[in-house]
Nucleic acid binder design. Structure first.
Length: 445
RNA sequence: CGGAGUGUAGCGCAGCCUGGUAGCGCACUUGCUUCGGGAGCAAGGGGCCGGAGGUUCGAAUCCUCUCACUCCGACCA
């Protein structure tokens, strides 16, 4: 992509309304535009990151054997009257009436609807286990939206629902989600700690929240800091292997890690003092096992092997997709701007032409651009007629992890410069070597 | 929902107290010079001063009402 033909409205100054760093940087980098309290347009750069995060979530859900579908944003109120939540949910639920005076609502979550789909089409235990999920916009009419996309009213969320014949099978689904979530966050360059949490209005006995540590987080957690060093890495996981999946969960949950709601001072005191940490975190996901809470009242039953009609065991699991964009920035930035992890970066690298209009520099940049595209990569070439400083400042702000700098001085010796946004370190090399290096960096992502 | 604020050019702000031709910086347009970390000079363009009512010869400024947004607290992916 050539920057001169792109739409990247960056701001030099901080917008007054943005208090926290991710919100400021998203506005300055031209990623979002606010349209109303807690409601945002995603401008091209922000949209690319959002899509990238969505892709990773999809890939890891599918890898775990979960099946994507898509449910609507608007739901009939009757479905929610059935579960009893239409009245319980309160002011947070946006209620709408159509031209025929029928009550609708903009979905804040989808337990009722997925249960409706399930009961219409599944009759037998032979069709289980089943996990369905979608990534769809939600609306919760928060009293006080804030922090940009981290606490919007409209937000994009992956929500998944498992249906199992019994508790053991449902708990395996729970564990499977935990492992798939750990891998999802790791691919985004995040350390997200699963913490035992309180269940809240969705209900159920088992639940973990995934917290990305950040001073601006809204949740409080207490943990053994050795948990932050655990890595899933590239180990192979067989998601059908209950014992293996359970072992991974135990590895990641045996150290103390709880939110303030379930915090237990006595248990925490057993953690060696040098590892005892309390801190704030951004909740980027949560998993629940809630048994037959929805299946029973809504009649989601299957026939078991003894011919009896039994309610299915369910769980639900969410990842805050749009919130993750903010969370990643909170976890990865410096005073100059964003630093995207390679896994979610909107463009794989930037190309900065120091002397636009110089024949050799222009040609070298074009060749680099073409070379990277030929390798299946997406470079952003700053071909504007701007001075070097302005181009560097823009690149640093929007946070592409790698930058190739091209100028007449270096080109005279056949060299360009490859710079890491994270470390600031530069290395001179031939243009071909730079393309090879970038391709290699992204080879397994 | 309680408390505190703010609405003036795309962004950041001044002007309001004490009514009298709407201003500054950045951004934008044109030209010249410059060109390895947000350049300089010159000339331009852009405003229903959030909205509605009122007071006044005259309102960005005073009064009333209203809408929107932000921040602090209690609640939530």
């Amino acid at each position: 992509m050539r920057l001169s033909r792109y739409f990247l409205p960056v701001l030099k100054e901080n917008p007054a309304e943005a208090q926290i760093v991710s919100h400021r940087l998203m506005l300055r980098a031209g990623m979002i535009k606010q349209q109303a309290a807690g409601i945002y347009s995603w401008l091209p750069l922000g949209y690319r990151v959002l899509r990238r995060i969505e892709e990773i979530v999809h890939e890891e859900q599918i890898r775990a054997g979960h099946i994507p579908l898509l449910m609507p944003t608007l739901q009939p109120a009757d479905l929610w009257r059935e579960s009893g939540r239409y009245d319980d949910y309160g002011q947070e639920m946006l209620r709408i009436r159509d031209r025929h005076e029928r009550d609708l609502l903009y979905g804040p979550t989808n337990e009722e609807m997925i249960t409706d789909i399930f009961r219409a089409h599944v009759e037998s235990y032979r069709q289980l286990p089943l996990t369905l999920y979608h990534i769809q916009w939600k609306f919760r009419d928060e009293v006080r939206p804030r922090f940009g996309v981290m606490r919007g009213r409209e937000f994009l969320m992956k929500d998944g629902y498992n249906f199992d014949i019994d508790r053991d099978s449902a708990l395996h689904a729970y564990n499977r989600h935990m492992v798939s979530y750990l891998r999802t966050y790791e691919r985004m360059g995040l350390t997200a700690i699963p913490m035992r949490a309180a269940s809240g209005p969705i209900g159920g006995d088992d639940t973990h929240e995934f917290l990305v540590l950040a001073a601006t987080g809204e949740s409080e957690g207490f943990y053994d800091d050795r948990v932050t060093r655990l890595k899933l890495g590239d180990r192979q996981i067989d998601y059908d292997d209950r014992a293996q999946v359970k072992a991974v969960c135990e590895e990641f949950t045996s150290l103390y890690a709880r939110t303030d709601e379930t915090h237990d001072e006595a248990a925490f005191a057993a953690v060696p003092e040098e590892h005892r940490k309390a801190g704030r975190g951004i909740e980027v996901g949560q998993i629940f096992y809630f048994g037959t809470k929805y299946s029973e009242p809504m009649g989601a039953m299957v026939v078991n092997e003894r011919g009896e009609r039994v309610p299915v065991h369910m769980g639900s699991h969410g990842i805050g997709v749009s919130r993750l964009v903010g969370a990643i920035i909170e976890a990865s930035h410096d005073e100059k701007g964003i630093i995207w992890p390679e896994g979610v970066t909107p463009f794989h690298c930037g190309i900065v032409n120091l002397r636009q209009g110089d024949g050799a520099a222009d040609a070298a940049c074009e060749a680099l651009h073409a070379g990277l595209v030929a390798r299946g990569l997406a470079p952003l070439y700053d071909d504007r007629d701007e001075r070097a400083g302005a181009k560097f400042a823009t690149m640093d702000l929007i946070g592409l992890p790698w930058r190739i700098t091209v100028g007449p001085r270096g080109l005279a010796e056949g060299r360009v410069e490859l710079t890491s946004r994270r470390t600031g370190e530069s290395e001179a090399m031939s243009p071909e070597a730079a393309v090879d290096r970038i391709a290699q960096i992204y080879a397994d992502r």
